[in-house]
Structures are given as structure tokens and as C-alpha cells.
């Protein structure tokens, strides 16, 4: 039996990524994902507030282990993610091209930048403490040391337009320091995010460290912003009005809030040098005093 030309491709069922597993939305809902020319690409899960709640629970459960892992170990895992992503570079370039409506070359360049961004943050794992912490020369017989620690469970609203590079640029800095994350994928371009879950699941990243939801951004963001067991929220993917509403909700348990950037070009914030601002946004500084005596 010969394969007819053209061969009928096997389509992928896109699913959520929660607690290391790939569930469908508990709501049973999906929505159409199309490319820039409105051609249907796939059905993506339309996650519900209950999916968001499950994702928070999974992220909280994973926090102790992930934040307690050595920085070296976290760095190795982020580097492993880069390795696995590199191996699927073509697949992601295809998804990025469809999602962002750009040429293959441009999509490849954005995919490469996303891979390199994992490498950049992998290297930060065991350096951020030295850069953001240090000994404090207090005036007294005391040893005094400040060290950064992860904030906890972070909700990330992925950028709406930069479907892979933007999403990696908000995800990697949050988790490298030991936070665990719930990532709400771009509403219109969720497929690279959902495929990234497959990379994360095969990179020794412990289950629950990253949880990925697709669906209506506002519908998912509202319960996350109000959730009392979420410690911080990155509003990168929120439109201005929604961002304000979420920031108000986040004040209820004083979540750390990272406001969206105001660049007019949706890609500029992600192609620029990432710097350390996102890395340092989800850290708490702990200062330890100890007497020096005999």
C-alpha cells in the first residue's frame, strides 16, 4: 500500500498543561485558532476559572520543591529546555509563522531568539543571588546578609502578539529564580505556548512548575488576579483597561504586579536586550542578622 500524495497529515489535539499532565479543559470547551489570514489551524482548549484554580493548586504544590532545588539544578533544567526547543526549531518556526503572520525566515529568527533567551536565563540561575544580594556592613557586631528569594506562585499573562519569544521572555525569568507559574497563553496565538508545554514536559522540569492555559485572557486573568494563593501577576498580555482592573483586584492580597509595557510595536519589548528587570520583579529580599561573638 502506497501513501497517497499529498499525504493526509495527522493533526495534533492541543491541550492544557497543568501539574505535568495534559488535560482538556474541565469545561469541555474549545475555540477556533486561525492564522493571520483566518485559515483554521486548530481547536484550542477554552480554559475555565476552574482550570485556573487547578493550575494554581498545581503551582503551589510544586513551589517547595522547585524553590528548594539548587540554583545549579534549575539552571541545568532551563538549559535543557533550550536544548529540547532547539531540536524542535522547525516545528516552532512553523507555528510562529502561522501565529504571527510573518515569513519563515523571520519566524526562524524569532524562534532562535526564544531558544537563546532560555540560555540567557539558564545562566542567571546561580548568579542572580550574587548580583541582587550581598553582605551588609551594619554598624555593630552582626553578620548581616541579604539574599533574594522567589516570591511564590506567579500568574503570567503572555504577550498577545509575540507568541513564542514574548512568552518565553515572561516565563523564563519568573521560574529561573524558583517561582512557579500559571501562564495564560495569547488568546489569538496560543499554539506555540501549548506546544512549548511538550518541551517543558520532556526537560526534567518538575510537574506543576509551569502550567499553561489557553482561552479568553480576561476570563482567566480575573480569577487569577483575585486568587488569594497567587503571589504575583505579570500583566504583559493585558490590554490597558483590563490591566487596571486586574491591578485593583491584585491589591486584595498585595500581589506583586508587573504592568504591561506601553510600546506601540508589540514585538519591541521582546526583541530588545532582556536585562534583569523581569528577573528581579518576582523576588523578595531576605535579610539575616546573626551576632558575632564568643
Amino acid at each position: 500500500m502506497s501513501t497517497p500524495e499529498p499525504r493526509l497529515p495527522v493533526l495534533k489535539t492541543y491541550k492544557l498543561y497543568v501539574g505535568g499532565k495534559f488535560p482538556r479543559s474541565e469545561s469541555g470547551r474549545v475555540y477556533d485558532v486561525t492564522d493571520s489570514r483566518s485559515t483554521w489551524l486548530a481547536n484550542a482548549p477554552l480554559a475555565s476559572r476552574k482550570d485556573a484554580r487547578d493550575a494554581v493548586a498545581a503551582a503551589r504544590k510544586a513551589f517547595g520543591g522547585w524553590s528548594g532545588a539548587t540554583a545549579y539544578n534549575r539552571g541545568q533544567i532551563l538549559y535543557r529546555i533550550a536544548e529540547m526547543l532547539e531540536g524542535r526549531r522547525d516545528q516552532f518556526a512553523t507555528e510562529v509563522a502561522a501565529a504571527e503572520g510573518v515569513s519563515r525566515n523571520k519566524a526562524l529568527a524569532r524562534t532562535d531568539a526564544a531558544i537563546d533567551r532560555w540560555v540567557w536565563y539558564a545562566g542567571w540561575a546561580d548568579k542572580v543571588t550574587q548580583v541582587a544580594g550581598g553582605a551588609n556592613p551594619v554598624a555593630g557586631p552582626f553578620f548581616n546578609l541579604s539574599t533574594p528569594e522567589p516570591t511564590g506562585v506567579v500568574a503570567l499573562l503572555a504577550p498577545q502578539r509575540s507568541s513564542l519569544l514574548g512568552l518565553v521572555s515572561v516565563l523564563a525569568p519568573a521560574i529561573v529564580t524558583g517561582n512557579t507559574a500559571i501562564l495564560v497563553a495569547s488568546h489569538e496565538a496560543p499554539l506555540p505556548a501549548l506546544s512549548l508545554a511538550e518541551v517543558l514536559a520532556t526537560s526534567d522540569l518538575p510537574p506543576g512548575v509551569v502550567n499553561i492555559l489557553s482561552g479568553n485572557t480576561a476570563e482567566l486573568a480575573r480569577p487569577l488576579a483575585a486568587h488569594q494563593d497567587v503571589n504575583a501577576i505579570d500583566l504583559a498580555g493585558a490590554a490597558p483597561e483590563l490591566a487596571t482592573e486586574l491591578e485593583v483586584a491584585a491589591a486584595d492580597n498585595l500581589k506583586r504586579v508587573l504592568r504591561p509595557t506601553t510600546d506601540t510595536d508589540p514585538h519591541t519589548p521582546w526583541t530588545a536586550d532582556p536585562g534583569t528587570s523581569r528577573l528581579l520583579s518576582f523576588l523578595e529580599t531576605k535579610t539575616v542578622w546573626h551576632p558575632i561573638g564568643t
Partner: peptide, 15 residues
Amino acid sequence: FFYYAGWADKLAYAG
């Protein structure tokens, strides 16, 4: 090697 690999693109942050 892992550790210093990570520094190569972060020298501006090393003080």
C-alpha cells in the same frame, strides 16, 4: 564550565 558559560553574556552585570 556551566557556571562561567552563564557569565559570558552577563559581564555588564558583574560589577
